[in-house]
Design a protein around this nucleic acid. Structure first.
Lengths: 240, 240
DNA sequence: GTCTATAGAGAGATAGAC
DNA sequence: GTCTATCTCTCTATAGAC
């Protein structure tokens, strides 16, 4: 795929153009199929023929709607980026740290379960240099991380959680939760499972939560007393 | 890339064939260049021409030494897998948990710093289904994880660390440490840094260690008293 | 607006001279 | 053992009929 400027601008006509009745449906089907194919084969490995077949539309239609393969790829990425930032909203200065972390980790794990392809497309893009999302990373994501790091720093300063490097703490949460989508093959093979069920994800989420909360110096569940309690050697992880 | 059976067998003539004086050097140069190109462009996106140019050899020579592009890719993967399992040796039943974890996390972070391309090639392979490493995952890696999980379970049973799901704890360590190689672009953009120096990695390693040890219910540094001490609200992270 | 048929570019692989 | 020149196939993209 060509290395054009990191132009993450809309390639889809903004939302619903008046005459778009079938158009919307087709665009949606193409985007869904493309997300999957890009996730499975990578950006370079995906072919328009694959995407066409999976969407049930003839190949020429993809070009009619999206122009080039790269445009389609960017449209898929845009879709993903738009939802990427949403779940961190629970981080607010006066929120309870344990509750906020629980909500965020749970949402991230849920995203890994329900939209693994999106996570993989994003991971693949970053892995290979992220030229299509440079601006997103350096502007949108950086601004968000700066803001949320300030919230975490506030919690630490107030003694409401153990001292952490706020940015690295966020990186850890991303790494761990997205790992369950991006590395699912490895996880399944190592655990000897053919697939990861909803129950599997509930159990894995509970364990991730336990580890993250402990790393934050927070006791189990929603309790908000960080410093005093001991590391709780025999916890009963409650599924959130 | 064709989906042939997960045949991770040697494609390089086993070690040094008698007549290999220049051969060894060339093979080495090609493998090094290939690892980099595969990491940057992915398996499908990499071209033999790119690899040839970066290795300084004509394209036909790559085919002379390795046959097909897929064979070369497998050779690169084999190289990586061989070193992938090594650093976890520090996990032994009578080792000190904190010391073993410290050594392992430090080694993994060092690998992310010094061989980021290897980590990316592996991540890319897993991300796209891991068809070339199926046997490695289901046999070698699974066996290793089973063995090391038993060690961790022993530590937990002996009250030497907080209760964890051993396999998920290992996944967490992998996810977090490899994240610094695989997602380096995102980390740099979010932190506003042009590159990550050796000092950056030292600081990041210290923080990862702090989080991992805390998640394991272990106090700072090499101390081996897990249960008694408080979460240590004001630690001075010592670079390992 | 939809689709078939095809043009054109690029990459993997090899023949054959050196 | 080494390398140039080329063959062939696949994939993107489009022209033009419907």
């Amino acid at each position: 795929m060509a290395r054009t400027a990191a132009d993450t601008a809309e390639t889809i006509p903004p939302q619903a153009p008046p005459q778009g009745r079938i158009r919307r449906e087709n665009v949606e089907r193409i985007l869904k199929a493309a997300e999957r194919v890009f996730a499975e084969a990578g950006c370079a490995g995906a072919t328009m023929a694959d995407i066409a077949e999976r969407s049930g539309l003839p190949k020429a239609n993809l070009h009619y709607y999206f122009g080039t393969k790269e445009d389609l790829y960017r449209a898929v990425l845009d879709n993903i980026l738009r939802m990427w930032l949403a779940p961190i909203g629970s981080f607010a200065p006066d929120a309870d740290p344990a509750a906020a972390l629980t909500a965020y980790v749970t949402a991230k794990m849920e995203a890994s379960r329900t939209r693994p392809h999106a996570s993989k497309v994003f991971a693949n893009e970053i892995l290979h240099g992220g030229t299509q999302v440079e601006r997103f990373l350096a502007e949108d994501l950086k601004a968000l991380v700066d803001a949320k790091a300030a919230v975490i720093d506030g919690w630490v300063a107030a003694g409401r959680m153990a001292p952490v490097d706020a940015r690295q703490f966020l990186f850890m949460i991303w790494a761990v939760t997205q790992h369950y989508a991006d590395f699912d093959v490895q996880i399944r093979k190592v655990l000897g499972r053919r697939s990861l069920t909803r129950q599997d994800f509930a159990a894995m989420t509970a364990e991730v939560l336990r580890l993250v909360l402990r790393a934050a110096g927070l006791p189990e569940s929603q309790a908000s007393e960080p410093q005093a309690s001991e590391p709780s050697p025999d916890p009963v992880p409650s599924t959130p």
